[in-house]
Amino acid sequence: MTATEVLRYAAFSADPEGGNPAGVVLDAAGLDEAGMLAVAASLGYSETAFLTAPPEGLGGADGRAFTVRYFSPVAEVPFCGHATVATAVALAERTGPGELLFATRAGTVPVTVTAGDGGLRAVLTSVEPYTEEVAAADLAEALAALDWPEADLDPAIEPRIAYAGARHLVLGAATRDRLARLDYDFDRLAGLSRRLDLATVQLVHRTGPAEFHVRDPFPVGGVVEDPATGAAAAAFGAYARELGLVPPSAVLTLHQGQDMGRPGLLTVELRAGDPRVRVGGAGVRIP
């Protein structure tokens, strides 16, 4: 394999036609930052992951620790969940299931890959999350960019910025129909996202005690919408626990991508006493 061979995987789906496609470069030692960005732009997926040797002291004497950088078609991002799952599955196909350790710009992210009847599945453990309030003017700008009247918001899902490796603005949709009708002002939402340092805006509709449908506009990445967003799922899990939407220990199911024709399934695990969030899903190579 050459340093610039780009593998293609779908994350959060066992079907190559579902989930979120990601690029994976398993040996990016020959690429500088501009080269990584050029590869990501050429591929056109929402994210491409680039692996190099781990930083000194991370461990990995067994060859299962790496430095990972993530690039959208237009910029580097500190962390990407679906590209992490895709990368872990790609590595497991070559070296077997087990524990991996990724050094990212957001922090160190452990990943566990297991094999089952449905293929390979990866579970990442996020960095420590947080949430913060959204200024009224920023919320008004987000709603204007989305063309959502305030009445379309679910009052039980309070607008917040949530972080678990990247920042996401969480907005609750009062109905599934509201969530399905996504047609927003790309440049306006991109401007707000850059100003607030947001990766995506996560739009959420609750369908059960621990079940949600979500969508993630990603204009700062040069992408209209992300089909399955692991970093946002981790951030939302922390948000849901902090606001008391779910118990301190819970397993959430997030459906994403149906409205794009790329259905994906994300599992979010919360553990009482551990602030970190675990996000898991299947992964499969795209032929």
Rank of each mutant, 00 (worst) to 15 (best):
T67N: 11
L58T: 07
D62L: 07
V74E: 12
L58V: 06
F50I: 12
A49R: 09
S72C: 02
A61M: 11
G60Q: 04
F50V: 06
A65K: 07
A53H: 00
F71G: 11
F50H: 04
P73L: 03
P54H: 01
G57C: 08
T48A: 14
L58N: 01
D62W: 06
P73M: 03
L58P: 01
L43P: 08
G44K: 08
V74N: 13
T67E: 13
L43H: 10
A75G: 05
F50D: 09
E56P: 14
E76W: 00
A53R: 14
A65V: 01
F50S: 07
E76S: 05
A49Y: 09
A53W: 11
G63Q: 03
T52Y: 02
R64H: 04
P55R: 14
G44E: 11
E56M: 10
Y45W: 06
Y45C: 08
G44Y: 11
R69H: 11
L43C: 13
L51H: 04
F71C: 10
P54A: 01
A49Q: 07
L58G: 03
R64N: 02
G44L: 05
T48H: 12
S46A: 14
G60L: 02
R69Y: 07
P54L: 02
S46E: 06
R69T: 11
R64D: 01
S72P: 04
G63C: 08
A75L: 12
G44F: 11
E56S: 08
G57P: 07
Y45E: 11
Y45K: 12
A61Q: 07
G63Y: 08
A53E: 15
P73C: 11
S46I: 08
E47Q: 10
G59Q: 00
R69W: 11
T52N: 05
R69M: 04
E56I: 09
L51Q: 03
T48V: 10
F66R: 02
A53G: 14
T52H: 12
G63S: 03
L51R: 07
E47P: 06
T67R: 15
E76V: 07
G59I: 00
E56N: 14
V68K: 03
E76N: 07
T67F: 04
V74R: 13
T52E: 14
L43K: 09
L58K: 02
D62H: 03
A53K: 08
V68I: 14
S72L: 00
E76H: 00
T52R: 12
P55A: 10
D62S: 05
A53L: 15
E56Q: 13
L51I: 04
A65T: 00
F66N: 09
Y45S: 13
G44V: 08
G63W: 04
E76Q: 15
V74W: 12
